[in-house]
Amino acid sequence: MKTFGLLLVLAALALWYFDASRKLSQDTVRAAYDEHIEAFHKGQPELLCLRMTPDYRIVDVTVGQDGTVRSEMGRDEACRKTHEAIAIFGRLGALSGGSLVPEIDVEIQSIELSPDRKSATVQSVSTMRMAGRPVMRTRAIDHLIRRTGRVLSRGGESRTWAYLPQ
């Protein structure tokens, strides 16, 4: 009887690991975005890097005062830049007494789940504000998967507009 119970528990764990822990839903995608924003606001770049798959690749086109710049980054470079950006924002916040702390809002435009619910394509618009003024807006398409209960990004494409302070 104990062997049967143990087999039942192992079967349930296997089902969760190979099926349920790899499926996405609208709610798990939205929760992942909320966690991403929270990690940014708390200055936790390592949590943001853990959200990237080993084959992560992002292609961004940035429009700013210097014209249009296209960049492509893999996981290591994107993670390094995330660490650098959060460190800079932390110093700005400390030097300004907290008045120049960036605020990020993300509006999910659409979530398209694959038929097997093991991947999703998310379109979003994010706005970064400092001192209440927009400094950057990004339209992004992100490709997500879920592994062992965690939602991970495989990367995607984005277009960013950087605004000059007025």
Rank of each mutant, 00 (worst) to 15 (best):
Y17P: 00
L50N: 15
K42L: 14
A32Y: 08
D27H: 12
H36A: 14
Y17C: 03
A31T: 10
Y56P: 09
E46W: 04
H36W: 11
R57H: 08
Y56E: 05
D19G: 02
E35C: 04
P45G: 08
Q44N: 07
L48G: 12
K23T: 01
Q44C: 07
I58D: 10
W16L: 01
D34K: 04
R22W: 02
A39K: 02
L50F: 14
C49M: 10
K42C: 05
R57T: 03
K42H: 13
H41C: 10
A31Y: 14
G43N: 01
L50D: 15
D19E: 05
T28C: 09
D27S: 14
C49E: 13
W16T: 00
T28K: 04
H41T: 11
A20W: 00
A32V: 07
L48Q: 06
D55R: 03
R51H: 08
L47F: 05
R57K: 11
L48F: 06
H36R: 12
E38L: 12
W16N: 01
L48S: 07
A32L: 09
L47S: 10
R22Y: 04
A39M: 01
D55M: 05
K23G: 01
F40S: 13
A20F: 00
R22P: 01
V29A: 11
S25E: 07
W16G: 01
T28H: 07
V29S: 06
A20C: 01
L48K: 06
W16D: 00
V59A: 15
H36N: 13
A32I: 03
D34T: 02
T53E: 14
G43E: 00
A31W: 10
E38W: 12
G43R: 00
F18E: 03
T28D: 02
E38C: 06
V29P: 14
S25T: 13
H41G: 13
Y17V: 03
D55H: 09
V59Q: 15
C49G: 08
F40N: 05
G43V: 00
H41A: 13
P45M: 11
R57I: 04
A32C: 09
P45A: 11
L47M: 14
R57G: 04
E35F: 06
Q44P: 03
S21R: 01
R51S: 14
E46A: 13
L24E: 11
E46H: 12
C49N: 08
F18Y: 06
R22D: 02
D34M: 02
Y56A: 02
W16H: 00
E46F: 07
P54D: 05
K42Y: 08
R51K: 13
T53N: 14
W16V: 02
R30C: 06
P45W: 10
H36T: 10
S25A: 11
F18N: 04
Y56L: 07
D55I: 10
A31G: 11
E35Y: 08
T28G: 02
C49V: 13
D34I: 04
R22N: 04
F40K: 09
I37T: 06
E35V: 05
I37H: 05
E35P: 06
P45I: 09
W16K: 02
D55K: 08
R57Y: 04
R30D: 09
A32K: 06
D55W: 05
S21W: 01
K23N: 00
L47W: 11
D34V: 02
Q26R: 13
L48D: 00
D55E: 07
F18T: 03
D27M: 13
A32D: 03
H36D: 09
W16I: 00
L47K: 14
I37P: 05
R51M: 15
G43D: 02
L48E: 07
